[in-house]
């Protein structure tokens, strides 16, 4: 998680810029005659934008000592693996992540990119082929010990989901290229 930490100042400034943009958008919400609408639809967003701006500025200007909240410590605890973390940093050449890249940013980028590809292909390719491919690719990326087990689980879970949701509960999962088969 260390690779994804930013200073409170940077986060505060980004949020402040977002709050200003939010306030500008709030000003553009149309007004109504006061007798029909005593509370304009822009009032609440304006208050929220102002609050966000105030909090963002507070975050940016607060002393550096306050920038490392107990949460960061708690985070490490909640990871549940203080020994694991220590081990991974000590080990030098050993894996620091679950996947095939040892660099955390690349690992997250690949996972987000893979999920984006899955979402993008879900409708054109169909639920069954896209899900099986995603599960297989995901298991391979995370260095599964036995690819045949992963393949069995991928096919089994996908078909069970299609049957359970599609056939029993009537949830229309995209058929994609399998549409001609009547799925």
């Amino acid at each position: 998680m260390e690779s994804f930490r930013f200073s409170d100042r940077v986060i505060g400034l980004v949020l402040a810029a977002g709050a200003v943009a939010y306030l500008i958008a709030a000003w553009q919400i149309p007004q109504f005659a006061l007798d029909t609408v005593p509370v304009q639809p822009r009032v609440f967003p304006l208050a929220l934008g102002a609050l966000l701006l105030l909090l963002a500025v507070l975050l940016a200007i607060r002393p550096a000592g306050a920038s490392q909240p107990p949460g960061a410590e708690h985070d490490a605890e909640a990871d549940g693996s203080p020994e694991e973390d220590a081990g991974s940093s000590d080990a030098g050449g050993q894996a620091r992540t679950l996947g095939r890249s040892s660099r955390p940013r690349v690992e997250v980028l690949i996972l987000v990119g893979g999920t984006a590809a899955y979402i993008g292909l879900l409708e054109p390719l169909g639920f069954i082929p896209a899900t099986i491919a995603f599960l297989l690719a995901g298991s391979w990326w995370f260095r599964t010990a036995r690819l045949w087990v992963a393949a069995t689980v991928a096919v089994g879970v996908t078909l069970a989901a299609q049957l359970g949701l599609g056939e029993l509960l009537g949830v229309r999962l995209p058929a994609g290229v399998l549409a001609p088969l009547g799925i």
């Binding site: 879900l122 995901g138 990326w141 995370f142 689980v153 999962l173």
Partner: peptide, 20 residues
Amino acid sequence: TPRPLLLPLIIVFCVIGVYG
């Protein structure tokens, strides 16, 4: 349950839940 299997499965469950 090995995490290499678990993590992609969680993503698929999330996708199904939201798509529905």
